[in-house]
Amino acid sequence: MKSSLVRQALILVALAFLPGIGQAIYFRDKVSWQSPIPASEMVTVAQARAWGANAIWVDARPDVEFEREHVPGAVPLNEDRWNELLPQFLAAWSPEKSIVVYCSSQSCNASREVARRLRDEAQLKNVFVLKGGWEEWLKKK
């Protein structure tokens, strides 16, 4: 009697798992909306701050957010106006400086994309993404 109840319960639990397993198999190759990034290309607020004048801060957020507030000295560079903003960024850039790109928070993807384009398209070196983004910078302000 008892074992029958347990067996039936287990069958029901297994059935409940089926849609989840199916979805995991079906969507295994789907593109994630967040670009993967190696840990070596991430930097914490403390590490980036320690670089002092040897770092150039890049704000990848939309213009309105940059205008509201930004890391002091940061240069705006977002994909809405990439062609227009890139020359301004490159005018401030210097080969010996590390580039720290940030967007709103840990979950945003804009900083990863901007960092990728700086590395792949402009072929710049020492490009890092700020862990936790602007939210983290505010906490450590």
Binding site: L90, W93, S94, P95, E96, K125
Partner: peptide
């Protein structure tokens, strides 16, 4: 389309 060229005030490490 655009590309940029620049002479920097630091030695090149390209």
């Amino acid at each position: 389309f655009y590309a940029m060229a620049r002479v920097t005030n630091a030695p090149a490490i390209q």
